[in-house]
């Protein structure tokens, strides 16, 4: 999954280089959402703090 996210970023960068701006931006938004989901998936340990 994580390698896939890096791969998506690589594709976005290449799209930007070859002038596909709109698609690159849409794909970036999708990737950002996937990163957030994957972050929430991994952030399961309890925090040892008292607020």
């Amino acid at each position: 999954m994580m390698a896939g996210l890096f791969l998506l970023f690589l594709i976005i960068m290449l799209m930007a280089w070859f002038g596909m701006r709109s698609i690159a931006i849409y794909l970036f938004v999708i990737t950002l959402v996937l990163c957030t989901v994957w972050f929430l998936h991994h952030a399961t340990s309890n925090l040892n703090i008292n607020l």
Binding site: M13, G19, F28, C35, W38, F39
Partner: peptide, 24 residues
């Protein structure tokens, strides 16, 4: 770790915006 890799991805995202400034 997974969180470290996600931080790397976010760094690349910051670079992506700057790259698009250079390209477009």
């Amino acid at each position: 770790c997974p969180l470290c890799l996600l931080q790397r991805l976010a760094m690349l995202g910051v670079a992506l915006g700057a790259m698009m400034n250079l390209r477009f």
